[in-house]
Nucleic acid binder design. Structure first.
Lengths: 329, 329
DNA sequence: TTGTAGGCGTTATCAT
DNA sequence: ATGATAACGCCTACAA
């Protein structure tokens, strides 16, 4: 394997000089910079990231902490896009990434988690799918041992940023659109998990909307479960004239229930997953670009790791309908 | 951060002795072994994997090379299970993992790929979704620079193993079941991509079956595309009395087409993805446990990395029907 | 059986 | 502006 040493020899300079050029240090003459770059080209040199990680305490590695939604069986779509977006961006930024799942830390203490992450030279973490139930993770964030970026949970401090859409607004928007299109008065709102951060925000969006339009609203805990949403709809669907769901999966469950009951009620979902295109009926939904959000999170993490302070980063969304013929190819 | 040095001091032995205990070397007295382990416990020591990777040339890291199926829009389910299965097993085996995607190496030469992987201290690779079109990857495997495990492609050599089900048999089985259940004579077979390894194997399964049962078979290239399958079915579905597809997605496309044409034909798919449960009609399919397959691949890779020779590893499958009420919760 | 010392490829701190 | 040199944490001959 060809190393920085070879480059140094080839360029006729010291190892440390090569390192400086590689890392864009200021005090290097244009002349040597060129010599070194030429040698790098000639030798096709690529720095060993493992050695770099070991040596420098600042250019650490980042961990993706993914909460695989096993609860719903439709695994994958969102999480994979998160992972992909993050990894691609990381490669662009020259950051090392390892992917981890919540389940790996199931019964671990805070100290064990920290130890493990440190043993991997992790200095930055992106967390996907955090809920209030993950107490140890919340402590981890609080511990300030790592730079963190949280997706879709409003946690911000010195070392922690959050990125995500404005859930309140988005829920308001998609529900309003659906309600106005169908001239509804009584809305059945099926929420996400009790302890989910987005759950509250979205609910507030509905509260604002129903108050503003003078609607009545029945709120049921769907826990992001397609089955629960289905049962709730079977029970209360008929008595309301629109079903607003805090997730697409729940919207699908609701729609399937309505179809079975052979009654029509407009339904809207949240997230814009491809699966929505398969259920026949078109529904309004909030569409997010998960890969892009994740890429932004990675950029934000890099900012934090190089000294930036935690902050809130907003991402975009659109209202959409997923049509079968659009999504297949 | 607490290091091997601290453990050595605490145990009153030399650093190298600690290392020996940690790595289960033979020549260590029971007494010192206990002293060291006690110190490890007390200090909650966890070895730094980055340093280990840098130091030892043998305990390298492994890369997951995933071919994200962008062609079909239903991304995720299979790939994510692969990733999850591999990472979980790797953690168990104490192996470092990084996840990469084919797209990252789109226009890269063999040398560039090798350089990159070496710069990451990669010594083992698991490849998911390989086709004959990935020429550079095939060269990479041939180069013998890394230990490789290929999923679902019959490539075996000194440093390369493959793991996967018997595609010929599985295709034969699921088709036979469907055909016998419905007493069919004329089968429309929609294949996967021309250059996919499994495509041929599955086709051979069909050839064996149709010959054995004396059926007529019409073979169309579906390229794993739901849309193509749909169009093929629209065109030829009526003239045949069963549609056998080399993937679930294509089975769904075929079924949707049949439904639109308002005719019934039994359809069977391949893979057992959750999505199958959403399309209403139940279809036979071959169910694979992707996470488990991937875990086996990781174990096989470890075997290779510790000196084992390449070989073929078979995995299990079952025939199943995906029912909506079974898959939601 | 145990310890010493050199090396893995970088980065970072000093002199120069 | 450049170059020695000491870390970084661990592994592994080799020596004791």
């Amino acid at each position: 394997m060809i190393s920085i040493k070879d480059v140094a020899r080839q360029a006729g300079v010291a190892i440390s000089t090569v390192s400086k050029v590689l890392n864009h240090y200021p005090n290097v003459s244009e002349e040597t910079r060129e010599k070194v770059n030429k040698a790098v080209e000639e030798l096709n040199f690529l720095p060993n990231s493992v050695a770099a990680a070991l040596s420098s305490k600042q250019a650490g590695r980042v961990a993706l902490l993914v909460n695989l939604s096993k609860k719903t069986q439709v695994v994958g779509e969102i999480d994979l896009q998160y992972i992909q977006g993050a990894i691609n961006k990381a490669m662009e930024l020259n950051l090392d990434v390892i992917t981890l799942f919540f389940s790996m830390f199931q019964n671990r203490t805070l100290e064990e988690m920290i130890r493990y992450l440190k043993s991997q030279s992790i200095t930055g973490i992106i967390i996907y799918g955090l809920t209030r139930e993950e107490e140890t993770l919340l402590e981890l964030i609080d511990s300030s041992q790592f730079k963190c970026v949280i997706i879709d949970a409003p946690i911000v401090n010195e070392n922690t940023s959050c990125v995500g859409i404005d859930n309140l607004r988005a829920q308001y928007d998609v529900a309003r659109k659906t309600i106005e299109e169908n001239n509804c008065k009584k809305v059945l709102y099926i929420t996400g998990k009790k302890n989910g951060y987005v759950t509250d925000e979205r609910l507030h969006g509905m509260e604002e909307l129903t108050k503003e339009l003078g609607l009545t609203m029945m709120v049921c805990d769907g826990s992001f479960s397609e089955l629960r949403s289905r049962n709730i709809t079977l029970k209360y669907g008929k008595d309301n004239d629109v079903v607003v769901c805090a997730s697409d999966l729940m919207a699908i469950g609701a729609m399937k229930a309505l179809t079975e009951m052979d009654i029509f009620r407009p339904v809207c979902g949240f997230d814009g997953i491809i699966l929505m295109g398969y259920v026949g009926k078109q529904m309004n939904t909030v569409r997010q670009n998960f890969a892009e959000i994740s890429a932004m999170a990675m950029e934000e993490l890099q900012r934090l790791m190089s000294g930036g302070k935690g902050r809130r980063v907003g991402t975009a969304y659109t209202l959409a309908r997923m049509k079968y013929m659009d999504i297949i190819c």
